[in-house]
Design a protein around this nucleic acid. Structure first.
Lengths: 212, 212
DNA sequence: CTGCACTGATTCACAGTATGCATCAATTCA
DNA sequence: TGAATTGATGCATACTGTGAATCAGTGCAG
């Protein structure tokens, strides 16, 4: 019944199998862009799904065919980033210790966000809205939680003799919790992108030293 | 516009100023009990607000006069617990170190939950639903986040020379993140109340050692 | 004790999110 | 070319959550 959908690793690679798939991606992209444009103009919840669909020149019904909820249009590529982190853990380098692997995985996600969403302004918009719109914040946290479970599982697989299930989830929970809390604090203080990133690094370092 | 309401410390002490207040509390309690009863019978989102209100013999509109959203009926006394933790931090005992204070604050919350919600079965119901109903999970996480901000502020006030704003929120974020992640993992593994509590303790200890 | 202010509860109306279902139209494949 | 697949649509609908007007009981001032 309830179900958090995740894209598989394969789907995250841009497939262009046929005109059909490309068309679908185009309307999806149109919806995202229309939404972002509208959110930059008006208050988040004064923008209705109907308006977004209208701006993207599709029917409102189509919106929900691409996104499970209104909020998801702003978290479009989050799944891909989790996959990056999972891969980073799986490809543990020789001699790399536990905290380093975890930090590298987190860095992978952050770096990808920086590269793809920062220039477009999407990162800033999302940050601003996530700090002020409860519904979006809730959805974001929820996705963090499911991502955490996957990261914990991957981490335990990478260090089977060192971690039990509880420790693994505690560790990942601490890392994600600390990072997002400090990022949010920095954001609400009015910090710019680089300061926010520094805050995240600082938080990660703090947690990392607990597993030295 | 958006606003996460919190009860003030004064309101958390049970006031019985007049018949009026008592009546209000009675309908509030009736709503909670009706909701719990229905949630135990049916699937969470097959129970409508209208049904809850009906079972409590009030109008549906009245439900939203007491709770901001459907989910909040299950998180009724959460605010009080945060206040307990804040108090625990403010009343820092002589010679108590940072990690100890934080752990004590968390313990305060957990212990209160155990004492008041465990016998009634509310704790179990909430745990079960929080692990399976996305909407509730989201709301819970959101409240954790606002609680975190308050805890971080209180902590910084208690250790002004030791903590900057970012470190304080990172620390609290790590603690809350680790604790809830491990609790959820334990729950989903099918652990009973005591095992869950142990998992939480273990997570707290892990984070506490990072600030030794 | 009486009228007035306050406020919880109710009723009615409504915007908006989200889903189910039948259907159309274009793509893909046999 | 004909058939199956599937993205998009329209329509109907359930439900959450809010606004506004109103009623009724409580508490307070005079």
């Amino acid at each position: 019944m309830h179900q958090f959908r995740r894209c598989t690793k394969l789907l995250c690679v841009v497939e262009k199998h046929g005109l059909r798939e490309r068309k679908k991606q185009r309307t999806r992209q149109a919806l995202i862009e229309a939404a972002v444009r509208l959110f930059e103009d008006k208050d988040y919840d004064h923008v209705t799904v109907a308006e977004i669909a209208d701006a993207a020149e599709v029917s409102p019904r189509t919106f929900f065919l691409h996104f499970q909820a209104k909020e998801d249009v702003l978290l479009a590529n989050a799944d891909m980033r989790v996959d990056l982190a999972l891969q980073a853990i799986a490809e543990r380098r020789a001699g790399e210790r536990l905290p380093e692997v975890l930090v590298r995985a987190m860095d992978e996600m952050i770096a990808n966000t920086w590269d793809s969403d920062l220039p477009s302004g999407l990162a800033a918009l999302r940050a601003r809205l996530a700090a002020s719109v409860p519904a979006l914040q809730a959805r974001l946290l929820q996705r963090y939680l499911t991502a955490q479970a996957e990261l914990a599982q991957a981490l335990q697989r990478a260090f089977p003799d060192r971690l039990d299930t509880i420790t693994a989830s505690a560790l990942v929970g601490a890392m994600v919790g600390a990072t997002s809390a400090s990022a949010l604090t920095a954001l609400q203080r009015g910090d710019g992108p680089n300061e926010v990133r520094n805050a995240m690094r600082q938080a990660m370092a703090l947690v990392a030293q607990s597993v030295t």
